[in-house]
Amino acid sequence: MSSSSGSPESWISSFCSLLGHEYFAEISEDFIEDDFNLTGLNSQVAMYKEALEMILDVEPEEDEDDDEDEEEEEGDESIEGEERITRNRAAADRRHQRIASDLTITESSAEMLYGLIHQRFICSRAGIQQMSEKYELAHFGVCPRTFCDQVRTLPVGTSDVPGVDTVKLFCPSCLDIYVPPNSRFQTVDGAFFGRTFGPLFLLTFPEYDLSRKGQDVIGTGRSGTAAADSGEREKINGMNAHNLAPGLGKGKVYEPKIYGFKVSERARSGPRMGWLRKRPADIQELDEAAHFHPDNENSDEGSTINGISSRHRHAKAPRQNGGSPMSVVTNGEI
């Protein structure tokens, strides 16, 4: 966010405004300047130093040998000699070519580096906050599944290693991933978002009403609703029960019918995939620890599976933000 205070033509903001880069957040320069955040990236990116300078819009410092060349040439210029000029021109041409080809290489490794930093940045406090603003405005699109009813999605990768797969959209409502509808995103590497961001987002902002449509949000601006009274809410396994796959369950599973009659699962063409979209009618059925406990009243194992006994967990008042270590406040809410 601090990058927005910089010149509007910064590399980062121009990169993020490119077609197909709509999902990217603008990484703050502070984050990039902290070497700790870049640990290990120098071995993953070619021309790391140049790429980093390009991202930060630092005037490229010529390497020592280049500097010498330049000084020499500057010196040459003061002496007027035709021979010199032609030689200079040839040298300049050569240098120009080299710089041009270097630039494209640097440009692509800068993009790679930016992507890899981006993967880390959006899991940081400032980054996830910025992504939540983009999420609220439905910048990442909506779920194509009919029963999810246009809920907003999050960009994720299926791998943390670049070059494996392109970016996908994670729908928190059906806990599934989809190919972005526009083909321009098929050139964006999934590793630039990483596997972690999507699920981490859900845990960081437990108060979001995931079942809200993207359309509504755009219509009404971003006025937080629903989560107004976060006092007593049904919890399941550390998540608000209403936020655990609200797009699944009874009435949201497609039932194949022919002339109004359900197709039997005994038919060869019968339904086989219903389980993928099912959700127990009573969500507390998923509290495995609680179910395990009564059967093993005397066994210590039952109560130590999660470190805390399930009974205790229910008794305790829910902590602010679900006890997330990253206490970030949902935008415009609480």
């Binding site: 806990l175 399941i236 993928l276 959700r279 059925e285 998923l286």
Partner: peptide, 11 residues
């Protein structure tokens, strides 16, 4: 993640 994983086990 615990909550989705429990749901997936149930499914």
């Amino acid at each position: 993640v615990h909550a989705p994983a429990a749901l997936i086990r149930w499914q």
